[in-house]
Design a binder for these strands. Structure first.
Lengths: 354, 354
DNA sequence: GTGAAAGCGCTAACAC
DNA sequence: GTGTTAGCGCTTTCAC
C-alpha cells in the first residue's frame, strides 16, 4: 500500500514505507527494517528479495518516524555570529562536511554577535529540534554559560569562555597572539595598536587575544598605552576602518596594528590607503583567521592561521561523542594547531614574485 | 507522565509531551494541541490553565512527531556550489532568515560546482528528508533538469538553466552584462576580455553572462576575439589570477576585463599587481555579485550588484508557495533588480575620499 | 530466522 | 468547547 496523501494544496505526496516493501517482498516489516539497518541477521534469500523490492519501489527511510521512535532528530545546530564572515563560512563548511559523515544534518543559527540571541541559543530555544549544539559565543561570559539549564549537549568553539563544564575547541589564542606580536616586534615595531576590543569591558573583562597583546608588550618591556587599544562594536571591515582612522588622529600614531581578525585588518588597510598611510612602511598590519581574502588583498595580509577544518571536525566529533555516550568523561579543552603566515602587510613587497 | 528515556550512552533525555501538559492542566491532549496551534477555539479559563502548565513544565513540540503526522519535515535544502564564496554565504544567510520566518529550517548542501553532485541533489537524494529544494546549478543543463523525476518541489536560482518547468529566480543576467560592458565602453575600453567561461563548451554552449558579453561587443560594433575569452575550471580568485596571466601573454593584451564574478575579478587584480599591470590604467576590471570584499579591495571593485536578499526571499516564497499549494500556477521566471556599482577598478582614484 | 504488535508525540476526524 | 482515538513510519521486544 503506497501511501498517497493529498496536501492542503492538492499536491500528491507519495511515500514508500517499510510496509510497502514488506508486502512486495512477502515478509514482515521487522525483516525489512533489519535488512535496512542490519541490527539482526537476515537469511540470504529473504535479504535478496527485500533488496529487490527496495530497488523497485525506491524506498528511503522516513527520518521523522525514525527520529520520533529513537527520541532524537539527527540535527545538530551550529550557532555562529554570521555566515558573512568568511572565517565562519569556512568553519561552517567544515562542520557540515564532518557532521554529514556521521549522518547528522547541520542547522545554522546566526547570533549576529548579539548577546540576547546568544543567550537564547544557549538556553536551547531549539529544544526538541536539535540533538546537540556547537556554539561560538562572542558576548557570553562565564556566568552566562554556567547558568545554562538545558540538558542538550553543547560544545563551545572560539576564544572566549573558559572554565565551564563543556568541551571547548580552539587554538591557543594567547600563544597565537604572542606569535603575532613577536613578529611585529621582530620587524622593529614598537608602537603597536590593537583593534577589536570588546565594548562592554566590565562584563567581559578580557578576551584572550587582547590578553595576549598586553602580555606580549609586557614581555618585550614596552609600555601599555590604552589609547592604542580600539574598541569596536562589531568585527567587520567597517569597524577596522573606523579603528584605524581613530588611531591616526593620535598625537603619536602607531607603527603597527594587531587586529582582532582579518576583516578588521582589511578594513584598517582600506582606511590607511584613504589616509595615505603606507602599509607596511608606516603601519604594519597583522590579522587573525587566515581567510582567503587576505591572500589576495593588496597588500596581502600577514595573519594567524588556525586549523579551521580541525576545529570543525573536532567540535563535531566531541559533540557526537557526547550524544552517543561514547564520550562521557569530563569536559575538555581541546587545542588545535595554528600557524603564523607572514605576507606583505608586514614584510612589504619582498615577498612578491617570491 | 514525563518521559524519561535513557540513551545508549546513559544520558537522560527528558521530553515534555502534550500528554504531560494535558494531565497537569486536567484537560485532553486535543485541547492542549488546540491551545498550542490555535486551530480550534478554546475557552478562556481552560486556555489559561493550559498556558500555565506549559510554562511550568517547559513544553516545546516534538517536531519529528509533528512532521511524521503531517507528512512533511519542515526542512528545505539550499544547494549551492560552496559557502566559501561570499556571494553564496550572503545568499544563504538571506535564505535562512526568510525560511525561518515561515517556520522552515534550511539544510545547506554543497555541490562544489560538481556535475555529479548537482545531479544527485537534483534527483533528490534527500528524499524523505526535505520538503523542497532551492538549487543553484553551475553545471546542469536544460536536459539534465528536464530529466528530473523526483516529485519534490524545486526552485532554481542563478543564471544558467532556462525553459524548464520550475520557478527560476534571478536577475536579468543579459541586461546586467550589457550594463557592465557598456560601462567599460563608456570609459573608452575597446579590447575587453571575459574571464570565467565554462570548460565544457559543448554541453553548456553558453551562459548568459558570456552571451551578454558577446552581444554587447556586437552592439558596439567590436570584433569578437576568442583569445580574449578565458575558460576557467572553477570560479575562485585563483582562477581569475590564472586568467589574467594568460591574457597578458597575448601579443595584444586586453585593456579591460569583464569577470564572471567578483572572486575572479579580485584574483585578476591580484595577478595584475604581480605583473606590474596597473588597474584601471592598463586594464580596467568589472566583477559581478557585489560581495563585501570588493568594497574594501585595493582598488575597490566595480561590479554588478544583484539583489541577494530579493533572490533569497523570492526563492523561499516561491518554494513554500508550492509546498503549501498556494502557488500552483505554472512555473515562472522571476526577475529581481540589479545595479551597476562603479568603483576604482574602472574609474581610478577619482572616487577616493568620497 | 522471522513475525506480530506496542508505542514514540502529534493532528484531525469524529463524537458529544 | 472539549474529549477520544486512529494512525503517520519506524524500531524493538517478545514470541515462535
Amino acid at each position: 500500500m503506497t501511501t498517497v496523501r493529498v496536501t492542503s494544496g492538492g499536491n500528491l505526496v507519495a511515500g514508500v514505507s517499510l510496509k510497502d516493501i514488506a508486502k512486495r517482498a512477502g515478509v514482515s516489516v521487522a525483516t525489512v527494517s533489519n535488512v535496512v539497518n542490519g541490527y539482526r541477521p537476515v537469511g540470504e534469500a529473504t535479504r535478496e528479495r527485500v533488496r529487490r523490492a527496495i530497488d523497485e519501489l525506491g524506498y528511503s527511510p522516513n527520518l521523522s518516524a525514525r527520529h520520533l521512535r529513537g527520541g532524537r532528530t539527527g540535527i545538530i545546530a551550529l550557532a555562529i555570529p554570521e555566515l558573512n564572515n568568511p572565517y565562519f563560512a569556512e568553519l561552517a563548511e567544515a562542520t557540515i562536511r564532518e557532521a554529514g559523515k556521521h549522518g547528522y544534518i547541520v542547522l545554522l543559527d546566526h547570533t549576529n554577535g548579539d548577546r540576547d540571541k546568544e543567550l537564547l541559543v544557549c538556553q536551547d530555544f531549539r529544544a526538541q529540534v536539535i540533538d546537540g549544539l556547537i556554539l561560538s559565543p562572542v558576548q557570553l561570559d562565564r556566568t552566562d554559560v554556567l547558568n545554562r539549564t538545558s540538558k542538550t549537549p553543547m560544545v563551545l568553539i572560539g576564544e572566549r569562555v573558559y572554565g565551564v563544564p563543556y568541551d571547548h575547541i580552539a587554538i591557543d589564542n594567547t600563544a597565537a597572539s604572542a606569535a603575532a606580536m613577536q613578529h611585529l616586534l621582530d620587524i622593529g615595531r614598537r608602537r603597536i595598536a590593537f583593534i577589536g576590543a570588546q565594548a562592554d569591558v566590565n562584563r567581559q573583562p578580557a578576551h584572550l587575544r587582547l590578553l595576549g597583546y598586553r602580555k606580549a608588550l609586557r614581555t618585550a618591556g614596552l609600555p601599555f598605552d590604552p589609547h592604542l587599544v580600539v574598541t569596536t562594536a562589531q568585527f567587520g571591515r567597517r569597524d577596522g576602518a573606523a579603528g584605524l582612522r581613530q588611531l591616526m588622529t593620535l598625537p603619536s600614531p602607531p607603527d603597527a596594528v594587531f587586529a582582532y581578525n582579518d576583516l578588521i585588518a582589511i578594513g584598517a588597510m582600506h582606511a590607511a590607503r584613504e589616509l595615505g598611510v603606507a602599509v607596511p612602511d608606516d603601519v604594519a598590519v597583522v590579522g587573525f583567521d587566515d581567510i582567503d581574502e587576505g591572500r589576495y588583498s593588496n597588500p596581502t595580509l600577514t595573519t594567524i592561521s588556525p586549523d579551521k577544518d580541525g576545529i570543525g571536525s573536532r567540535a563535531v566529533a566531541s559533540l557526537i561523542g557526547r550524544l552517543q555516550g561514547s564520550r562521557d568523561d569530563r569536559p575538555e579543552e581541546i587545542q588545535v594547531p595554528f600557524a603564523l603566515v607572514t605576507r606583505q602587510s608586514t614584510l612589504g613587497l619582498d615577498l612578491v614574485h617570491r
